[in-house]
Every structure is written in C-alpha cells, then in structure tokens.
Design a protein around this nucleic acid. Sequence first.
DNA 1: CATGAATGAGCGTTCATTCAT
DNA 2: GATGAATGAACGCTCATTCAT
Lengths: 208, 208, 208, 208
Amino acid sequence: MGINERRVRERKIRRKKILEAAKVLFFEQGFSATSMNQIARKVELSKGTLYLYFKNKEELYTSLLLEGMALLNTEFAKAVAGKTIWVEKLRSIGWAYYQFFLDHQPFFHINFQFHHGEITKNISDDLFQKCYASGVHSLNYISNAVAEGMSINEIHDDDPMSVAIVLWGSLTGIILLHEGKDHRKFIPDSLEKLIEKSIDILIQGLKK
Amino acid sequence: MGINERRVRERKIRRKKILEAAKVLFFEQGFSATSMNQIARKVELSKGTLYLYFKNKEELYTSLLLEGMALLNTEFAKAVAGKTIWVEKLRSIGWAYYQFFLDHQPFFHINFQFHHGEITKNISDDLFQKCYASGVHSLNYISNAVAEGMSINEIHDDDPMSVAIVLWGSLTGIILLHEGKDHRKFIPDSLEKLIEKSIDILIQGLKK
Amino acid sequence: MGINERRVRERKIRRKKILEAAKVLFFEQGFSATSMNQIARKVELSKGTLYLYFKNKEELYTSLLLEGMALLNTEFAKAVAGKTIWVEKLRSIGWAYYQFFLDHQPFFHINFQFHHGEITKNISDDLFQKCYASGVHSLNYISNAVAEGMSINEIHDDDPMSVAIVLWGSLTGIILLHEGKDHRKFIPDSLEKLIEKSIDILIQGLKK
Amino acid sequence: MGINERRVRERKIRRKKILEAAKVLFFEQGFSATSMNQIARKVELSKGTLYLYFKNKEELYTSLLLEGMALLNTEFAKAVAGKTIWVEKLRSIGWAYYQFFLDHQPFFHINFQFHHGEITKNISDDLFQKCYASGVHSLNYISNAVAEGMSINEIHDDDPMSVAIVLWGSLTGIILLHEGKDHRKFIPDSLEKLIEKSIDILIQGLKK
DNA sequence: CATGAATGAGCGTTCATTCAT
DNA sequence: GATGAATGAACGCTCATTCAT
C-alpha cells in the first residue's frame, strides 16, 4: 500500500516541478516561443517524461492556467472573509487582484493570454470545463458583493453578474495597459495609484 | 505615362489585399501561429511575393497595426467633433471605440496583441516610432476631454493622462473579457449593454 | 548604319559595366553569397536586363574569369617582351603574376575559384573552351622560357609544360596560402619577400 | 551498465557516418552548393538528426576539416620518424602530403577551401582555435626540417617558417593545379611525376 | 517509469529565373 | 531593349511528438 502512495506522491511532486519551470518560461517568452525542450532542461527531465505528465504542450499550458485560477480564488475567498459591507468587499477584492498580479505575474498573463490566445485547440474537454468553472467561481465573488449592494438599495438594480464583468474587465484592462511595452513612459502614475483611482471611480460610479 | 501610374495603383491594391488576408488570419490565430505560407495561400500569391511588399513578418503585422490605429484616430476625431461638453466627448469616444471594435474586430485585437507580444524586434525604428506616436494620439483625445472636466471643476483635480488610462483600460478590458472564449455563455447582457453600463459607471465615478 | 553601330557600342559598354560591378561583389562575397539582385542594383540596371547580357549567373561569373585571363596574358606578353635570357623571362613572368595579383585580386581569386569551385555546370561549351584555350596560352609563356633553358642545356632535359605547371602551381599556392584566413599571423615575411624567395628557389632548382 | 556504453558507441558510429557522407558531398560540390538536406538523404537520416550531432552546417564542415588535419599530422609524424637528414625529412614529408592527397582527396580539398571560404563565422571559438593550432602543427614539421638544414649550413640562413610556407604552398598549388577541371588534358606527366619534379627542384633550390 | 534519439513537417526567408508590359 | 513583379523551389534550422530501449 505504502509503495503505491509514495508513487502517487512522487508523481504529484514531479508534476508540480514541471509546472513551476514552465510557468517562468511561458511568462518570459510566451507560449509559442517556449519549447518543450527548454522546459525539460529546466526541470532536468527528459523531453519524453513531460509527455507522461501532460498530453501535449497546450494541456501543460492550460494546467498552469488552472492552477493560477485556483490560487486567485483562494485569495478572493480570503479577501471577502470577515468583510460585511459590499464596498469593503469590492475594494478588498480589487486589491487582492492587484496583489495577485504583483505576486504571480506569470499566472496573470497566462490567464489572460489563454482567453485570447492561440491555445484553445488540442486541449481536452474536461480541462476546458474546469477552466470555465473556475472563471465563474472568481466572478461570483464580485457579483455576490454587488448583489448585496443592490439588495440594500445602494446600487442601481441590475444584473449583478454583468456589473461584475464591468468591474473585473476594468481592472484587468488597466493593468494590461499599464504593462504595455510603450505606454509606461508617459504615464506619470504608478500602477498602484492607477488601481486606487480606478477602484475609487468604479465604486463611486456604482453608488446610487 | 499612365503605365507607371497604373503600376503604382496596382501595387497599392495588392498591398491592400495582402493586409486584408493577413488581418483575418492574425486575428483568428495570433501572430506566432499564423505563417507567411498561410497568408500567401489566402491572397493566392506566392510566398516570395509577400516579401516584395513587406520586409518581414513582423513588419507586415505592424503595418496592419498602424493602419488600425490611424483608423481609430479618425473615428475619435469624428467622435469629438462638434461636442462641447466633456461628458459628451467621453461618451462619444467610448461609443466610437465600441463601434470600432464591431467594425474592425481584427484590428482591435491586433492592436492589443502588439503591446504585449514579441513583435517589437525586427521592425524598423521608423515603424515603431509611428506606432508609438499613434498610440499617444489616441489617448490624447480622452485626456483632453478629462482635462476640460477638471478645468471647470467637475472632475477631481488629477493628472488627466492617468485618468485617460483608467478609462481606456476599462473599456478595453471589458470588451476583451466579453470576447473571451468561455465567458459569453453566462453573461446575460449583450456587449452593447455592458458598454453602456460601464460608460455610465465611469463617468458617474469621475464626477465630483 | 550608324544607328546599328551605336547599338553595338552601347551594348559593349553596358556589358563592361555589369562585369565591373560583378567583379567587385564576387570577390568580396564569393560566388554563392553574391546575388543577381545585388549586381543589378550596383550597375543600376534591372535584374531582367542582366539576363539579356548573360545567360545565367554562372556565365556572368565565367565571363569575368575570361576577361581576367586575357588581362593576365597581356601582362605576360609584356613581361617577356625584350627579355632574351630564360632566367630573366621566368623571373619577369613571376613578378608579373605577383603584380597581377596585387592589381586584380578579384580576378586572381575568381580565376582560381573557377577551377575548383562550384561553377562548371550551367555554362556553355563555347565559353568553357575559351577559358581552356586562355589557360593554355598563359602556360605557354612559361613553358617557352623553360624550353629555351633546356635547349641551351641549362635546365635538365624534360617536358617543358610539366615544368611550367610546377612553377605556376608553386607561385599560385604560395600566394593563396599567404592569403589564407589565419596563416598570415605567424608568417614573418611579407608576401613580396615570399615571392622573391620562391622565385629564387625555383630558378636555382631548375638549373643543372 | 552496458546500455550507456552502447549508446555512446552508437553515437560515435553515426557521427562518423554523417561525416563520411558530408565529406564526399562537400568535396564534390563545395560548401555552399551542398545542402544539409542532401547530406541527410545520403546518410539516410532525417534533416533534424544532423542537428543532434552538429550545431550547424559550418560546424559540421569544420569538424570534417579538423579530422583531416589530425590525420595529416599523423602522417607527417610517421614521415619524419627515423629520418635524420633534413633532405630526407623534406622529401618524406612531401611524399606523405602527396599520399595524403591520394588517400583523402575530399579532406585535402576541404582543408584548402576552409582557408579561403566564408566558413569562419558561425563556428565556436573552440573549434576555430583547434583548427588554427592544427595548421601550425603541420607547418612545424616542415620548418623544423628546414631549420636543421640551416643549422648545419646547408641552406641559406633565413626564417625557417617562411621557407616552410614556400614549400607547402608550392606542393599544394601544384596538386590543385593538376586537379583543375581543364588542365589535366594537356599535361603529359602524371601527378606523381610532377610531385617528384617539384620536390627535386625545391630541395635543389634550397641548397647553398 | 524514464529516457533521448529520431522524425518530418513546418518555419521565415532568399534568390535565380521568367515574362507580360 | 528594358523593366520589375512574380514565381516556386530551395535554403538552414526548429520543434512537438513518438517509441524502442
């Protein structure tokens, strides 16, 4: 029995290490520019071994994405824990998202690239469904807070999920814009200040 | 002679057709996943011919981008023309941006991809400078309107360009999020309604 | 009538100019690395025009070679003119060869490359025959001088042409060796001194 | 385990086979005119496999060269072994060079082409240094013999290396000339006789 | 389970040559 | 006669993937 457990454990560890290495490379170089060879070399495994753990390059990439989303959801859970007022919840989620970007830039970018990138083909339905569910989960944290604001009549009645999309999209867009190759030069504010501004503007804009 | 003029005209037409084909493919598949071969096949020209019109893949891509930015700036110019109140200007710019997305989805995406991609190498300095200038130009339309609002004390005093980034980023993020491969399914609102909401929220949020 | 003559004259001039441009490029970059496009640009003619004057790249290259050989033969003729003693003739030819190398390095190299290079295919029999005849012509200058030495019993009786090959080959080999990418560093003598030495050695060696 | 040893052995064999095929093609067609595809087809391997054994085309070519030089140096070492008189040494080296040409024509030509080609770029410093050192090594065999002749006053005092260049260049030039595409036809002597002649002439010419 | 040699399709790019004008 | 746009085969090289060991 113990022998089997050990095997399972070791598999998990190895899988983790592969993802760890891949994360850095994918982030630094993008999906296409990163080769399975590079990843293999970085984890000090053979190329063939990678295929024992992931069906193909796309699934490896997408698995990474899934991990990132899980992590983000954990952070969102922490962010709303103990908060009772919708404004506080939204503010807290906003900063948690920003902090997640700071702490896990690779995940943040991979996450984004996935939705607009070249990856969708070649991954299994199962994996895709998991990603989808995880995305809904994230948005729920936001829409729940918004729904609270509506229920106590502090926000104009509307579909909470749509408003959640607006909020999430706004923050994401601002971060990505700030990250853009050439824009930073003429933006006087730091990203932190930009985030502060946008959270203020959005919450202010939501209120009746 | 007319002969030379015809040649110039034909060159322009062909160049246009190449860009047209490339636009679709780059949009559908992204930069890396699109090959010069595919583009050539789509315009029914030989691979070699592409290189008579564009120095390399990157310049072809960037030329596309530049066209898109010029187009957008034209729309922004039209949008603010005749408007005297900052709120109207911002609203109008917002809808122009949305309309631009509807009319030129490929451009919209290519534009965005550029700023976060690996394209910058291999293109001439001249081309890069033009792109940069064009980007600044776009943002100026927004920041000018914001500056007006500040000058008449209707917006909290701040750096107008930073606020412009927040606005631009928000709309972009929302559109991209909506476009995301898997999200549309559970968003009840159409993109149009989302845009309306976000413009309302953002303008409301800006006001003192 | 005059109109036709002018045409012929102009053709010759243009042909000359093409060869002139090609000579420099072929020498600097080698046969394969030089493109017809480069040559066309250098003479400020269109690519197509080149093919009106030369059947293909190889024939252009070989025509160049033929010119070089003609030039060399002229120099050899001058070198032996007025000399009556075989030693003087050989010495003079040797220095003329060296001088030809100094003055027409491109020709010298093209000449050599031809015989051991990648060119032979694709050229017309006629052109090939001309090159062959020109080569024999050059060697005759040397073998004639050698034959003289034999006839007055100052050189061991032998086949003069074979001896000519030895002399010609020796000088060519020394020059090429000296020109080699990495040898010059540790050769204390200048090429001129090397040539002097080898002429001395060879003539000394020939004498009974 | 034997498994690893077998792998190493097999790698060596395959490497050898690639070099073998490349040698013939490079000799027949020259560097530029030979494609990796051709080599691959000749060894019945895929193009990609070639790159598992050699970093690029230039390194493959240069590796070939290096092997040839090592081989030649072995022959030179054998040639001078047991010889005590400088004349004998030179004669022996000369014939060893000729024999090397007979046995390894491809090597002989590749060796020579290297020094006047466009290969130097794209190869590692290490490989280049090895080639350089090997070339010097070869010349030393000759210059040492010459130096002996000078030390016992049988050769005019001079720089031995310069004289070595003259000797080496002469023989090389003669062989190459004889090999030239069109010359052999009218040279009555076999290459062997030419070599004999030239060795005689050169040694005779060296003596005081 | 892990390896790494091998594959072969594909990449971006170049270029000698042709041919309609 | 001169042009230059167009071709298409070929180039060196990469890389995701497979499979015998």
